[in-house]
Amino acid sequence: MFTGIIEAQAEVVGIRDEHTNRHFTLRCPFTHELKIDQSVAHNGVCLTVVAIEGDTYTVTAIAETLSRTNLGKLKQGDKVNLERCLLAHSRYDGHIVQGHVDQVGICEEVRDQQGSWLFRFRYQPQAAGNITVEKGSICVNGISLTVVESGEDYFSVAIIPYTYDFTNLHTVKPGDQVNLEFDIIGKYVARLLKK
């Protein structure tokens, strides 16, 4: 389990396809603290560390992951938001994030508000109950954010300068895909109400 509080960014230094799998080799500030079999969220996608060599480590994404997320569009040199899994004695600063991306969204607008940025994202409404609510939580590329405006198939979020600079949001522009994980509590409530 994760909280959506980004620890660092990793740089993609290698990509290798093997059958339908794609192996990503990355470099990050805490590679020396990782261990094989450890879960790390990459742009909000929970992946397992399968190899460590020097200051780089490798994770593997299967076809299902590549089809549901923006990881399939990564190229060498891209930056990825990272979060290690939550420790039992840690503060819970974000919201409940599973590392299971529901779908991708498309950035429609980035508006500079002279001290913050407003991002608007559109997504395909799903039967699974992927919804947002104003002032509720949404996970975008692994980042726990608060919804400003909520529509049937879109939402907006306001970004403070620290989050804009410290995560890969500063590279997101209109037309780009982002990974979305909708609030798990909202998904359960929506499912129960359907019954």
Rank of each mutant, 00 (worst) to 15 (best):
I52V: 12
T58M: 06
G77R: 00
R68M: 12
V59D: 05
G94S: 08
T56A: 07
N70D: 15
K75N: 14
G77A: 00
C85Y: 01
L71T: 02
A88L: 15
K75Y: 07
E53S: 14
Y92V: 14
N70M: 08
E83N: 06
K79I: 06
L86V: 12
R68A: 12
V80F: 03
G72D: 12
L87M: 13
L86W: 03
I52T: 04
T60S: 07
A61V: 00
A63W: 05
L86M: 15
R68V: 10
K75F: 11
T65E: 11
H89F: 02
L71Y: 02
Q76H: 11
K79M: 13
T58K: 07
Q98L: 10
V59H: 04
H89E: 12
V97H: 03
L82H: 03
E64C: 09
Y92F: 15
L87A: 13
E64R: 09
E53N: 15
H95G: 02
E83L: 08
K79L: 15
N81C: 04
K75W: 08
I52P: 01
C85H: 03
G99I: 05
D78N: 12
G54C: 03
E64M: 08
L66R: 05
V97Y: 04
I62G: 10
L74K: 14
L87C: 09
S90F: 10
D55F: 07
E64V: 12
N70T: 12
H89S: 09
Y57A: 00
L74C: 14
D93E: 14
S90L: 03
N70C: 14
S67I: 07
E64P: 08
T60M: 09
H95C: 10
L82F: 06
Q98K: 00
L66W: 08
Q98E: 11
A88R: 11
Q76T: 15
L66E: 08
Q76A: 12
V59W: 01
A88W: 11
T56G: 03
R68Y: 04
K79W: 12
S90Y: 07
G99F: 04
T60E: 10
L87Q: 15
K75A: 14
L74Q: 13
N81T: 10
I52A: 05
I62T: 11
Y57G: 00
T65K: 09
E53P: 02
S67K: 15
E64F: 11
A63L: 10
K79E: 03
G77C: 06
T60V: 12
G99S: 08
L82M: 09
K79F: 14
Q76F: 11
E64I: 09
K79V: 05
H89V: 01
N81P: 04
V97T: 00
H100Q: 11
D55G: 06
N81R: 03
S90M: 09
H95Y: 10
H95F: 07
Y57H: 10
Q98A: 07
G99Q: 02
V59L: 10
S67Y: 02
L71C: 05
T58C: 09
G54W: 11
N81H: 08
I52Q: 03
L87H: 14
D55S: 13
T65W: 11
T65C: 14
S90I: 01
G77V: 00
K75V: 15
R84K: 14
T60K: 12
G94R: 03
T60Y: 04
V59Q: 04
K75P: 07
L66A: 07
S90G: 07
